[in-house]
Every structure is written in C-alpha cells, then in structure tokens.
C-alpha cells in the first residue's frame, strides 16, 4: 500500500507533528516502503489460528478495589511548564 503526501500530512496533523513540504515526500516514500515490507506477512496462511495476544499464556492481571495511590500533587505537577496552585495551566482550549 502506497501512502501519498496527502495521507502523510493528515497522519502528521493527527499526531500533532510538524513536517515540512520537502520531508513529506521523503516520509511518504519511507512509510510506503515500511508498509509494503509488513505486507509480506499477508502471504502467511493463518487459517485456523487464534490471534496471539501475548508471548506467554497468561491472564490479564487485576487489582483489588483499594485506594493505594494519590496525594502527590507536587510530584504530578513537577514537570508542568505552567501551573497555578495545584492546577496544570494550558492555553485556553474552549470551543
């Protein structure tokens, strides 16, 4: 499957990545190559195989419904570029 520049630009936008016009060309070629390489997997006959969800046979780990975490607002906010009291502060995003 080939990805044209338009699709690459859209993917970049959805991922909030800035890509220059010249990079779009390179990216679309590289991504197309990666996809066609992965498409080789489609040649394998997987009829009758369950999808493998883990390399080891195990069940999803669960936790008890107990509060064990929290009360660390300063740690949570430690890397925030901007904060006020214990809120994160970001540019206004209201509709």
């Amino acid at each position: 499957m080939a990805l044209d520049k338009e699709i690459v630009a859209r993917i970049a936008k959805l991922a909030r990545l800035e890509i220059t016009e010249s990079d779009l060309e390179v990216m679309s070629q590289e991504l197309s190559q990666i996809l066609s390489w992965i498409e080789q997997l489609e040649e394998v006959n997987i009829e009758g195989f369950e999808p493998m969800t883990s390399v080891v046979k195990m069940d999803l780990k669960v936790r008890e419904d107990v509060v064990t975490d929290g009360d660390q607002a300063d740690d949570i906010l430690a890397n925030a570029p901007e904060r006020k009291d214990h809120f994160f502060v970001v540019p206004k995003v209201i509709e």
Partner: peptide
C-alpha cells in the same frame, strides 16, 4: 475554562 481570561486550568 473560567479561571483565567486566556488560560485553561486542568485537574
């Protein structure tokens, strides 16, 4: 959205 004229506060 109502805490500041140009900023949004996140909790």
């Amino acid at each position: 959205h109502d805490q500041h004229p140009t900023k949004t506060f996140i909790d």
